[in-house]
Structure formats: structure tokens, C-alpha cells
Amino acid sequence: MMELFGITATEYIGYLASFMVLLSFTMKDVVKLRVVNMIGCILFVIYGFLMPTFRIGLPIIIANAAIFSVNVYYLLQKRS
């Protein structure tokens, strides 16, 4: 995997995912919060799949897929 400044592309995805989730907690608008959090979740799922072994990434994938689903559910509820 490619490295830049000694950090792999997988690690950059993990850092970006963490940043997006953290950023979502600073938002007052609930819709924006959920959308930014969903982006973080998607990045964490990608990060989980890129982990060296599937066993290591599976808890990350499961947790963030579940959080993503909760966000989708509440966004759809808000539309109704």
C-alpha cells in the first residue's frame, strides 16, 4: 500500500473517518450532523475492509454499518 510521510493510505482513511465523526459532534443542525456522521461511518467501513486481516476489521465494519443504518432511519423519519 502506498505511504506518504510514513502513513499508509489505509491509515489516512481511518484518520479522515475519525475527523468526520468528531466534526459531526460539533454541529447543531441534526440533519447535517447525521450526514457528516454517515460519511465518517462509510469511511470507517472502508477502513475496516482495508485492515490487514478481516477479523481485525470486522468489529469496525459492524459497528459503523449499524450506526450508518441508525442515521438513515432517523433521517427518513425526519422527512415524514
Rank of each mutant, 00 (worst) to 15 (best):
V36H: 04
T10L: 09
N71P: 01
F5I: 12
P59F: 01
L58D: 07
Y74H: 11
I13Q: 07
M2R: 06
Y15A: 00
Y12A: 00
L22T: 05
R34N: 14
I56D: 13
F54R: 08
N71I: 03
I42P: 04
N37K: 15
K78I: 01
L22F: 12
Y47W: 12
N64S: 10
Y15P: 08
S24V: 07
L4I: 15
L50V: 00
Y74N: 07
G57H: 02
M20Q: 10
I46A: 13
G40I: 04
M51D: 03
E11W: 03
T10N: 11
Y74G: 00
L58P: 04
E3V: 02
L16P: 03
G57A: 03
F68R: 00
N71S: 05
I67E: 04
L22C: 11
F54Q: 09
G6W: 01
M51T: 14
I67N: 02
A65F: 12
K78C: 02
I62N: 06
V72S: 09
I61D: 10
I42D: 09
L50C: 01
P59L: 00
V21Y: 06
V31G: 02
I46N: 13
A65R: 08
Y73T: 10
G48Q: 08
Q77L: 14
I42V: 14
F54A: 11
K32D: 11
S69F: 11
M20P: 07
A9Q: 12
R34V: 06
V35S: 12
L75M: 13
N71H: 03
F19E: 13
I60H: 02
Y47Q: 14
L4M: 09
C41Y: 10
A17Q: 13
I67F: 03
V21E: 04
A66V: 15
V70E: 05
F49R: 05
Y12Q: 00
F49C: 14
V31Q: 12
V72F: 10
V35T: 11
A66S: 13
M27F: 03
L23N: 08
F68L: 13
G14M: 08
N71T: 02
N64P: 02
L50D: 05
L58T: 14
I67L: 06
R55T: 10
I7V: 15
D29S: 12
I61Q: 06
L76E: 06
D29M: 09
M27G: 08
I60R: 02
P52S: 08
V36R: 06
N64F: 03
F25D: 11
E11D: 06
L50H: 04
M20K: 07
N37E: 05
C41W: 09
M38W: 07
V30S: 15
M38C: 14
K28A: 05
S24E: 06
L22Q: 10
L23C: 14
V36G: 14
N64T: 00
S24I: 07
R34Y: 10
L16H: 01
R79M: 15
V21K: 06
A63N: 02
I42M: 13
R34Q: 02
S69H: 13
M2Q: 10
C41E: 04
L76A: 14
Y47H: 12
D29V: 00
L33V: 03
T53E: 07
